[in-house]
Each structure stands twice: as structure tokens, then as C-alpha cells.
């Protein structure tokens, strides 16, 4: 939240890359292009990729870099309009009815269904946001919501508007910046994909992984980071249940640094293996890999 909002919106993909870089997020050209186009064309951006590759982080960092608030909608099964778009404050409505009765006042329907009783949920909040720049809306792990929910999003993604039948249609003043992420645990509907720019995030190359680790774990030394990045790359090539993502690599190097390791040795790998291996099978496999991996 420290960054001052940039005076002018980014004018090129390189600009975006520099902005994200200042927030310690190292984007490659594809990601930077996707983000830039999403900002300039006002289209939502759908990010897919393996878990832990930096999809959610991209949205968070983008909000920080642009100096705008981040509105986050975590998806889960059963998510519906009343949690994502808007809801009516039923308790207050009932109370208002009772009060009107007690005071012998007349109550019209439009009195009850006014903005006073409207509860904003993340998407409506984003549409009605009243700031100098549009906020970043992160719709996280949309594949976890059921397919009925995707249909709820279509109006918002296409037109940037939300319709409340009792009140009318709210339209965003500026096209909101929307980032959707998905782990591909199920296929999203084409109608949703059509409305978005699409970008598949890859695991970073070895050189970029080292650069990322250097930025995020400044207390670790260069030799440690280099061999750790190599080891993580090696682990990804093994037949592991859960390939370690960038997030795991960062946690692991941070754990190594906390233990005061200056270079990667077998004992330290075993001591910090819990940061990297997330199933018992993987733990055994990684312990084996640590035995055979040529350190240094």
C-alpha cells in the first residue's frame, strides 16, 4: 500500500513490467502484455496455470502497483448472487415494516427496495466504486465455483454492469480491472472464456526463478538461491504428486535462510523439507532426491 498511484496509466507492456517489477513481481513478456491489454482494452483477464505459479499474486501486485484497492472474491461451490453480486438486508426490511406499522405510516414497496437496504457484495462494490481510478477485482479460483455461477458473471464481465431487478442496472463509470484465476480443476464455459483475455502462466525459467528468489528472500545468499532454484527445477521433473510452485520455492528458501544456511547441504534440505513436499509420498521422494542431487 506504499506505492503512490502512477500519474499516468501504463502506456506499453514494458511499462507494466516496470510497474510490477517495482513491486517485486517479475513478469515475463507474455504476462506483461496480457496485463497491459487488459488495462487498455478494459477486458477481464483470465489467468490459468499450475497452483503456486503466481496467478493470485499477479492481481494483488497489480492493485498495489496501480495504487488502487483490491476487491477479492474467493470462489467456492454454492457461491451465489447473494454472496457475489448483492443482497437485500432482510432483517432491516422486516424492522422497517414493523416500525411503519407501529407508527401507522404507509409503506410503499419502493421504500423497502431502495439502496438503503441494498448490501453490496464484491462485484457490485466494484461496479459502484467511486474513486479516482477503478479498483482491481480479483475473482480467485473460479473453477471452484460451480458452472451456474459462471452465468452470473457474464453480464458483469461483458458490460461491466450489474442488474438489480428492483432498482435497475448499475454500470461502472470506468471499465473495472478484473482478474480471474483458475487452476483448471474443471473446464470453464466458452461463454466466460470468450469475454476475457486469456493467459497461461508457466513456471518461470531457472534464471527468472533465481531473480524472483533474490527479490523475495533478500536474506538468503546468492549461492544458496542458485542451488535451491536448481533443486526445485529438478524436483519438478520428478514424478511428484504436487510439483512445487514459485510460492513453495520462496517459502523453502526463506526457511533455509531462517535456519542460517549459506549453501545447500543435505541436512538442511531434510530439515526444511516440509516447506517443499506436501504429501508423505513426496517427502520420501524428495528425501531420496536430496541424497542423489549433486549440491554445489
Amino acid at each position: 500500500m506504499t506505492a503512490a498511484p502512477p500519474a499516468v496509466p501504463p502506456t506499453s507492456a514494458d511499462d507494466v513490467r516496470r510497474l510490477l517489477d517495482a513491486q517485486d513481481y517479475l513478469a515475463d513478456e507474455g504476462t506483461a502484455t496480457a496485463v497491459f491489454l487488459s488495462l487498455r482494452l478494459g477486458l477481464p483477464l483470465l489467468l490459468e496455470g499450475e497452483p503456486g505459479v503466481g496467478k493470485t499474486a499477479a492481481a494483488k501486485v497489480l492493485a498495489r502497483a496501480l495504487g488502487v484497492p483490491l476487491i477479492r472474491l474467493q470462489c467456492y461451490e454454492g457461491l451465489s448472487a447473494s454472496e457475489a453480486l448483492y443482497d437485500w438486508n432482510y432483517q432491516r426490511q422486516l424492522l422497517a415494516i414493523r416500525l411503519a406499522e407501529a407508527r401507522h405510516e404507509k409503506l410503499a414497496e419502493s421504500d423497502l427496495f431502495s439502496e438503503e437496504y441494498l448490501l453490496e457484495r464484491p462485484i457490485l462494490q466494484c461496479v459502484r466504486y467511486d474513486g479516482p481510478a477503478s479498483p482491481v477485482l480479483l475473482i480467485d479460483e473460479i473453477d471452484r465455483a460451480d458452472d451456474e455461477f459462471e452465468a452470473l458473471l457474464l453480464e458483469f464481465l461483458g458490460e461491466g454492469s450489474v442488474t438489480v431487478p428492483e432498482l435497475g442496472t448499475f454500470t461502472a463509470r470506468r471499465p473495472p480491472t478484473v482478474v480471474l484465476t483458475s487452476n483448471r480443476s474443471r473446464d470453464l464455459h466458452d461463454a466466460l472464456r470468450r469475454r476475457c483475455l486469456y493467459h497461461w502462466l508457466e513456471f518461470p525459467s531457472a534464471a527468472r526463478a533465481i531473480e524472483i528468489l533474490r527479490r523475495t528472500v533478500p536474506e538468503a545468499n546468492a549461492a544458496l538461491i542458485e542451488s535451491a532454484a536448481q533443486f526445485v527445477g529438478h524436483v519438478r521433473s520428478l514424478d511428484v504428486d504436487k510439483a512445487p510452485g514459485v510460492a513453495e520455492a520462496i517459502n523453502w528458501v526463506a526457511a533455509l535462510a531462517v535456519l542460517g544456511a549459506t549453501s545447500l547441504v543435505r541436512e538442511d534440505v531434510l530439515a526444511t523439507i516440509s516447506a517443499l513436499a506436501k504429501t508423505p509420498d513426496d517427502r520420501d521422494l524428495l528425501a531420496e532426491a536430496a541424497d542423489t542431487f549433486a549440491f554445489g
Partner: peptide, 8 residues
């Protein structure tokens, strides 16, 4: 790629 392709 970002604009035209929508399926991995």
C-alpha cells in the same frame, strides 16, 4: 495469443 486463444 492473449487475444485470440482461449483454451490451453
Amino acid at each position: 495469443r492473449v487475444t485470440l486463444v482461449h483454451q490451453p
